[in-house]
Amino acid sequence: MKLGNPDLRSRLASEYVLGTMKGGARRRFEDYLKRDAQMRAEVEGWETHLTPLTGRLAPVTPHPRVWTRIEARLDAVTARASAEKKTIGLWESLAFWRSLGLGASGMAVALLTAMLVLKPVDQGPMLTAVLAEDNNVARVFVEQPKSGMLMVKMVAPWKTMNGMALELWVVPKDGPPRSLGLINDTGETKLVLTGMDEKLAGGLVFALSKEPPGGSPTGQPTGSVMCKGAIAHMPPRLPRSPI
C-alpha cells in the first residue's frame, strides 16, 4: 500500500517530525517509512527545517555516567558480534555471502563444482565458481584459465534484463566488494583486467549484481544480487613429473 494523497502525505510527515503523532500511529508510520523513500525524503525535509529551532535551547551537560554506560553497552555488543566483521557500504548481506564458503548454497552447486573441477588438472584453471540464485538454480560459471583473465559463462541466461547491465564482483574476506567488470547476459565473456590477480586475492565469493547500463555509478554494488557462489581456489600446479 502506498499513501497517495499529497496533502495527507505532507501532514503525516510533518506531524511525525513535530511529535504530535504518538504511540501506535507513530510505530505504524515508522514501518511504513521503510517502504516509501519519497516519504522518508519528506520527513528528512521537515527535520531539516524544524531542527534549527533547537538552537534556542540552552545546552545541559549530562552526567559522566551516561558515557560510561554507553561504552559498557558497546563493549557488550562488540563481544557478541566479534565473529561478525563490520562491513562498509550498502550491501548488507555481505556477511551472509561470506558464509557461503561453508557450503550453505546447497548440494546441487557443490556437486556441479566438483564435476567441473574434477577433470585432468595439468592445464586446469586457477579458480572456479558456480554462481547460483538463492533457490540453487545455477546461472553462471566462472573460471580463471590463467593469470590476469577470467572466463564467465552464462549457463542459464535470464529471459530479459530490461536494459540493465550485469556486473561481476569479488567479495574478499574483509572490506567492500571489488568490481571485475560487466558481463554479457548470454554466452561467454572474457574479462581481462590489469591488477586482476590482486583483486582476486583473498576473494571468497563471486556475485553478479544488476546495475544501470554502464555499470554501478558508485563503484559499489547498487542493484539486487542476481546470483552468487563460493570461489574454489585451485592449488598451484606443480610441473608434471617426468616419470
Binding site: 533547537t54 540552552a58 549530562p62
Partner: peptide, 24 residues
C-alpha cells in the same frame, strides 16, 4: 554533541534520569 542533545531530550521527558536513558 552531548549537551545539546541532552537538552533536547530533557525538554521532552522532563526527568534527568529518563533523559540519560534516552541519550544512552
Amino acid at each position: 554533541t552531548k549537551s545539546k542533545l541532552f537538552a533536547v531530550s530533557l525538554r521532552i521527558v522532563r526527568e534527568r534520569h529518563i533523559a540519560e536513558e534516552v541519550l544512552q
